[in-house]
Computed example of a mutant assay.
Amino acid sequence: MARSHYDILRRPVITEKSTQLREDANTVVFEVDPKATKPEIKGAVEKIFSVKVKDVRTVIVRGKQARVGRFVGRRKNWKKAYVTLHEGEHIELFEGV
């Protein structure tokens, strides 16, 4: 079964580091499907946001150990994609920002 573009991109990652990257290097950070490939991520971003993507870098973020009372477990691993856009392109994640 084919995944839609909205299944590949899960959510934007909004942190101090990702905000600084967006301002300085024209790079947007997304949480993506762990099985998504770089070409799939590039196609999804270009289709959803109507921009030209220059580069895609991915990172597997390892889940941390989590504790609830006396029970110890682990959070799930997840995949993060750094998407660099061409000059002049931008994605507005929030209106008016």
Rank of each mutant, 00 (worst) to 15 (best):
F49L: 09
Q20G: 02
E40P: 10
I41Q: 05
P39H: 12
E31C: 00
R11H: 12
L93H: 05
A25P: 02
A81R: 02
T84M: 11
L21Y: 08
D33G: 02
L85G: 04
L93W: 01
A25D: 15
I14R: 01
Y6E: 12
E46R: 05
V59I: 14
K79N: 12
S50W: 00
V29F: 00
K38E: 13
V97K: 13
N26A: 02
Q20K: 12
A2S: 11
K80S: 02
D24L: 03
S18R: 02
F94L: 15
K47I: 02
E40N: 08
V68C: 04
W78V: 00
P39Y: 01
L21F: 06
E92V: 05
E95H: 07
V56D: 09
T19F: 00
V32W: 03
V13C: 12
P39L: 06
V29W: 04
V51L: 07
K79M: 11
K79S: 07
V56T: 08
Y6C: 04
E95D: 14
L93A: 09
K35H: 11
D24H: 04
T37P: 08
Q65W: 02
R75K: 13
E23C: 05
A36P: 02
R75G: 01
G69K: 01
K80C: 02
K54P: 02
R57H: 13
K38Q: 15
L21Q: 14
G88T: 09
T27H: 09
K17F: 01
A2R: 13
I48Q: 01
H90Y: 07
A36W: 10
V13A: 11
V56W: 08
A36N: 04
I91P: 09
V53E: 08
S18D: 10
K80D: 09
M1S: 12
R10T: 06
K76Q: 13
